Simulated assay, not measured.
Amino acid sequence: MDLRSTLLLIGGSACSFKLLNTAVGFLPTPEPSRTKAWKWRNISTSLTHSSLTGAGAVLCFYLQPHIAEDLISSCSLLSHSLVAASTGYFIHDFLDMALNQPLKKSWELLLHHSVVISCFSLAAASRLYVGFALVSLLVEINSVFLHTRQLLLLSGRRNRSGPEILSPRLSLAFSITSWLNLGTFLVFRGFTLCWMSRWLACHSEHMPRYVLMMGTAGLTLISIMNAVLFYKLLRADILKNTSKSSNNH
């Protein structure tokens, strides 16, 4: 795939996710989330991206295990297309947040997306480091549960200790999603980012300095953001419930 085809794929992906985002607005929306219609559309679109790219990354490594042996120069049509399509999604989501959400609420994600777009664009355009970008897409497996949790909260389906209790069944759904989110967070965010950092350090002599600096800065920023996010999730879903349970006894 040449550079022109790559740019067309990135642009086509961005437009496709924009169309999906618009289409979600015409679907039935849970009543509690109607006051936050933009957020519901945004997270629903993000869930679709996470489901596709998380499964796609696993499929790439399964069908083409040689990619894992050389994350710098190994590149296949499937892996390259997946990274390019994901770049298009992050461009769409960056613009969606920038246009619809106050900067004070979105600056962290805008910064995160800027880093990802820069790194993925480099991989897609040069056809180098595609394998490394593919490893980072394994993080999206956790994002499936993270976005599902957000949609449950928007729809009012909180856990038993929350202010909105619709039914024990829905409370159980939130609880299961919460635990799956925390578990996959440790595996597919924590372990993956640690492995990527170690790999970057071990292969630093094989990379141009600007690529090494870009990768190091990106991984450092994303690791810090993920550590903060994990603490917030742990405090909201586990520590608060434990504290309330202790007070009740």
Rank of each mutant, 00 (worst) to 15 (best):
K39D: 14
V58W: 07
L153Y: 08
A84R: 07
S44F: 01
L77P: 01
N181S: 07
R34P: 08
H206I: 07
D70Q: 03
C15I: 14
S175H: 05
F230T: 08
R4L: 09
T6F: 00
D96K: 01
K36V: 13
H113W: 06
S155F: 03
G156H: 00
L47S: 10
L170P: 00
M207F: 05
K39F: 02
L63N: 01
A236P: 00
G162Q: 07
S73G: 01
V83R: 08
S76K: 00
L9C: 01
T177Q: 00
I91Q: 00
F132M: 11
G131C: 04
A123Q: 12
Q150F: 05
M225W: 13
S161F: 14
F61D: 07
L146D: 02
V115W: 13
L59V: 01
L212T: 15
C15E: 11
E205L: 01
A125L: 15
R160H: 10
T29W: 01
V130F: 04
D96T: 09
G218C: 11
S246W: 05
T35Q: 09
V187Q: 08
A23W: 14
S13F: 15
L71W: 09
S79L: 03
L3W: 08
F132Y: 15
A23E: 04
K105R: 04
L9M: 04
T22Q: 12
H206Y: 09
R169Q: 01
Q150E: 11
K36A: 11
R157P: 00
L200W: 13
S114Q: 15
T220S: 14
F174R: 05
R169G: 01
P208E: 10
N181A: 03
R149E: 05
L8F: 15
S126K: 08
A84T: 10
S51W: 14
L7F: 05
S51P: 01
G54T: 05
S178A: 13
W195M: 05
L151E: 09
L82M: 02
A37V: 11
G218I: 15
V130Q: 04
